[in-house]
Amino acid sequence: MSDLKQELKEKIITQLNLEDIAIDEIADNDSLFGDGLGLDSIDALELIVMLDKDYGIKLTDPKEGKKIFESIEVMANYITKHRTK
């Protein structure tokens, strides 16, 4: 699980172009949106594509993302339970 969390932090920084943020600055329970990392709605769509492409998880309802992308911890738990690749 800790490997997956590390992997998610790396992917988020790279794929969302968070140039000024280092991996160790993202705590497992930090909010990804709002006052946390400050991700926006386009980032949310990008994360939905990432779940599909890298983990084989298709979100049928984009509103699900609001809960799943709450933090690295929540994302990692969700991916572990639902991944198909």
Partner: peptide, 9 residues
């Protein structure tokens, strides 16, 4: 087929 929303915008 994985279009990137961040590129598309």
């Amino acid at each position: 087929y994985f279009p990137s929303p961040a590129i598309f915008v």
